[in-house]
Design a binder for these strands. Sequence first.
DNA 1: TAACAATATGTCATTACGACACAATAAAAT
DNA 2: ATTTTATTGTGTCGTAATGACATATTGTTA
Lengths: 244, 244
Amino acid sequence: MDLSVYMNSVSVDCVVFGFNNGLMKVLLLKMKYTHEWTLPGGFVRKEETVESAATRILKERTGLDNIFLKQFRVFSEPERSKMNPAVSDLVASGANPDLDWFAQRFISIGFYALVDFTKAVPTPDYFSEKAEWRNIDEVDPLIIDHSLILQKALNTLRLQISYQPIGYNLLPDKFTMPELQKLYETILGKKLDRRNFQRRMLSFNILNKLPETKKGGAHKAPFLYEFNLENYKKALENGLGGGW
Amino acid sequence: MDLSVYMNSVSVDCVVFGFNNGLMKVLLLKMKYTHEWTLPGGFVRKEETVESAATRILKERTGLDNIFLKQFRVFSEPERSKMNPAVSDLVASGANPDLDWFAQRFISIGFYALVDFTKAVPTPDYFSEKAEWRNIDEVDPLIIDHSLILQKALNTLRLQISYQPIGYNLLPDKFTMPELQKLYETILGKKLDRRNFQRRMLSFNILNKLPETKKGGAHKAPFLYEFNLENYKKALENGLGGGW
DNA sequence: TAACAATATGTCATTACGACACAATAAAAT
DNA sequence: ATTTTATTGTGTCGTAATGACATATTGTTA
């Protein structure tokens, strides 16, 4: 492992949200040896931006390109690196010259990502023995400040859902209104009225209603929708209205 | 100047907004020698967070404590450091051993700050000959990517004004409704209806109406208001409603 | 003391929102 | 085949929020 390709001092941590079976999921890695859980993350190569780094890392962890990714916070407590018990133990033992590098102070750029659960293939990295989806409310304590990062990502997502569109890259290309609603309910952690939800969602003009319906469910076939990408992107830039 | 106290690779740039005479202002520094304009910024000491760094830097540039500060974006183009013509010229000349340090790749954490124009005392730093307020729409091109940073800060501020309270630390402790409205109009760049503005603003419950009025203007004396800090902070956390 | 200029406040029509009910239909049960 | 069941599509109604607008009020200045 050639550490010289990476910038010093800067790392990236990603909170990858997925959505399945009415539950909000987050992608976690289980470390080799210490068996502690972490967020997927990594370092920034000398020639890439932090966004490229996050994109590269998530491609490795999920197999996906074109992930919705958003910087949401920098985590820079000077003591945060020392909160990693695995590294500090290893450093103390003087086992490996690389450990000095890992023991340096890192400032971590927090990203959150929204991905299509059904398409992502969780894949561990060099340091981890497995990668898997966990329900958002069944997450064990994570190393360092990763629990904090997860919590802040969720907070940010819940705030942003009020003024920015959500769902592209988190749902399949074609989806039903009940599926979209479930996504909102899951992120917000509360039930919404079916009829009022649809009315408001349609008023944003970011959906195209398709002529097809989704058969196979045991009941009345719901219509399929897709995002109107042009308007969706406008809404990402300018918000969903409701302000001044 | 002892550079060893700073972290490598990480810097902080601050977009400091002020508000005076109905105009939105931004604090800029004019560099020595090259006379180019920059945003106030600096490096992160080895024992401080990026927030502490920004707070320290702004205290130096304005004399103010307790500034409203918000991280809004990391700027990490690998080429951005090389876009500083002053440094690259100096590096090429081999003039000063410190220059290697300045020429390294920096990732910059962008903050925006909202300050009380009347209380801030613009103060240049080691690299600059003067510090001054400029009208937001009369800013000359800035070094490196600072024009981009300024533009992104303004965008962020305009989006956030729709779902978060604004004004504390930007207005005097006691202010009138027309002053608050002017602030909103300035940030948003458009006129608002006086009566509707007041009605909506009061509905947020973040203002205390004071019994006093502000005399001295050439007309009917407007009432003074102050922010209700408790509710203001709640609103910062949870937004102003209007979502789901 | 009258004119002025800006402020305080109220009304009305329109729109958005929350709560709610009933008709339609795909699949499964009979 | 027919009925049952669960879920979706759609509409209404009362209330609250919003946008447009007019009139009364009051420090200052002429």
